[in-house]
Design a protein around this nucleic acid. Structure first.
Length: 510
RNA sequence: GCGGGCAUAGCUCAGUGGUAGAGCAUCAGCUUCCCAAGCUGAGGGCCGUGGGUUCGACCCCCAUUGCCCGCUCCA
């Protein structure tokens, strides 16, 4: 068994060599953490997206889809919490090479002083016993007053600096307070730099008259702001869902591991609106439903696991990840979150538009609760690809590289191969190609020996190779070769489409 | 952002201070009735980019970009 790191590298180079994933703008030396999908990659990616869409929208009568724009009104991100929650001032300690959030350092420092007050109080309490009046002590004891004064001074200056975005003063404050790095113990700090999660750009034809807007960091908000539009025009009754796939953009501090963490990526999200109080039930429902979706692709169950969040985001009351065992370990692939009424309430407040649902059963209006399923399309792509990649040693001692992709997702469903480039075999093969193309992505190839063509299609995951030989001209039969087993059957041409269609179905889950 | 490593043909890699090679792949032709066959021929590289040292740099030095590993961050 080769080590995981080498295995991952092989997958990356295979992805490039066979037209799945290219580094972005490669002829200009690439662009960090951005990748392009090639001729085979785009098919696989489309197929994953399509299968997700079918599973969510087509198979659920109470789920509909939308496609909201990437540009959104700036207030959207104020309401969602992204503007406030993801603007972190960062600072590095040059000696320990550790990075900290500058605000956390200062807050910790204040907490330390706070701790001293608590200690004084505890000491005094011991001294005075039952007669101790904490409030009085805190307002009269000089030492406590001094500490409190310190905290007030720091916090005043600190929050003023943050408000004005005065990062130099934040650094100055850290120096003035003599804050040291917990690891190196030194005060050798870099400048404070602002980290912004969201990419911004200017909307407007002239720079001076333009407004700053953001590229969405998640697709979910496009659903929330359209909640009322869809509910009204679709006459949707709770519970119902809105699904959407699309690009999102995050300015990651460290974006790495191939397409696992990219700055531009694609999400597939579904927000499910439920009656308050029902959210736990639906949260459990969607956890199970989404796991079944993954298993329906025939990937072993032990590659997946749930990871329940201990620490919850500002909008959630329950959250679990579906993790997948990537070549670099178990990592988040999909999130199922119970988002409460946080988002709709926030938008209701910021927009001053009523985002409520009138429930005829209870005769009440309320803001619905939301259960979200959110999966990274690129991560799914990587999960499928890394699970499929295998190198096999054959009985004759030769080796082959096979992408054992779920047939449903493979870029090509069938390769149409005349055994030889003469005697009318290509003509016959093209007839069959024209027939199958109506239903499936097919690839015609007549160059090179048949074995070589088989291997080429193994490498891009084509599940079926249809070979046309001399017998085909006589009795209208062909051989169909199965990718994983390499076994061949001879079947009548007219049955081909039905057989392929039947074999590429997903695995039904209980 | 910091530390370390890497960058030569489409891919995997050799290489020497005196202006570049192999295997595979690609293309053309011949041969071949089922798992990377053979023969013949062809195309393809200002040796990541920009400076410097030198008579002369793919090679030495500096910078820069990208990738990989580790740290940091992560809804």
């Amino acid at each position: 068994m080769i080590n995981q790191e080498d295995f991952f590298k092989k997958i990356i180079s295979h992805a490039k060599e066979y037209g799945f994933v290219f580094p972005s703008s490669e002829i200009y030396d690439g662009l960090s953490a951005v990748y392009d999908y090639g001729q085979n990659g785009v098919e696989l990616k489309n197929n994953i997206r399509q299968y997700w869409w079918k599973s969510m929208v087509q198979y659920h009568e109470n789920i509909v889809g939308i496609d909201a724009a990437i540009f959104m009104h700036p207030t959207t991100w104020k309401a969602s919490g992204h503007v406030d929650a993801f603007n972190d001032p960062l600072i590095d300690n040059k000696d320990s090479k550790k990075r900290y959030r500058a605000d956390v350092l200062v807050e910790d420092h204040m907490a330390k002083i706070e701790g001293k007050i608590t200690k004084e109080v505890a000491k005094a309490q011991k001294r005075f016993g039952d007669a101790f009046d904490e409030t009085q002590f805190k307002t009269t004891n000089q030492r406590v007053l001094d500490y409190q004064q310190q905290i007030d001074t720091i916090s005043q200056r600190f929050y003023a600096a943050l408000e004005k975005n005065d990062l130099q003063d934040v650094k100055q404050l850290i120096e003035d307070l003599g804050i040291v790095c917990p690891v190196s113990g030194s005060r050798n700090w870099t400048e404070v730099r602002q980290f912004n999660l969201m990419f911004s750009t200017k909307m407007g034809s002239t720079a001076d008259g333009a407004n700053e807007i953001f590229l969405r960091p998640e697709t979910a908000q496009g659903i929330f702001v359209n909640y009322l539009n869809v509910q009204k025009t679709g006459r949707m009754k709770l519970p119902f869902g809105i699904a959407q796939t699309g690009k999102a953009f995050r300015n990651e501090i460290v974006a790495r591991q191939f397409i696992f963490r990219m700055r531009e990526f694609e999400q597939m999200e579904m927000q499910f609106f439920v009656r308050p109080g029902d959210e736990k039930m639906w949260y459990e429902y969607w956890k199970k439903e989404r796991m079944n979706w993954h298993l329906s692709l025939g990937i072993p169950a032990d590659k997946y696991r749930f990871h329940d969040h201990e620490k919850l985001a500002h909008y959630a009351n329950a959250a679990a990840d579906i993790e997948f065992e990537f070549p670099f370990g178990f990592k988040e692939l999909e999130g199922v979150h119970s988002r409460t009424d946080f988002d709709l309430s926030a938008h209701q407040k910021h927009s001053a538009k009523k985002l409520q649902y009138f429930d005829p059963e209870t005769n009440q209006s309320y803001v619905p609760y939301v259960v979200e399923t959110s999966i990274g399309l690129d991560r799914m792509f990587l999960a499928i690809l890394s699970n499929a990649f295998s190198e096999e040693k054959l009985e004759d001692g030769s080796e082959r590289v096979v992408l054992k992709l779920p047939a449903l997702l493979a870029p090509y469903k069938a390769a149409i191969l005349p055994l030889m480039k003469k005697d009318g075999l290509p003509e016959k093969a093209r007839e069959i190609l024209a027939e199958l193309q109506e239903d499936f992505m097919c690839h015609y190839e007549e160059k090179d020996a048949i074995g070589k063509r088989y291997r080429r299609h193994d490498a891009i995951g084509t599940p079926y190779c249809i070979t046309i030989d001399h017998q085909s001209l006589e009795d209208n039969t062909v051989t169909i070769r199965e990718r994983d087993s390499m076994a061949q059957d001879r079947i009548p041409v007219e049955e081909l489409a039905a057989i392929i269609r039947k074999r590429i179905r997903p695995v039904k889950q209980a």
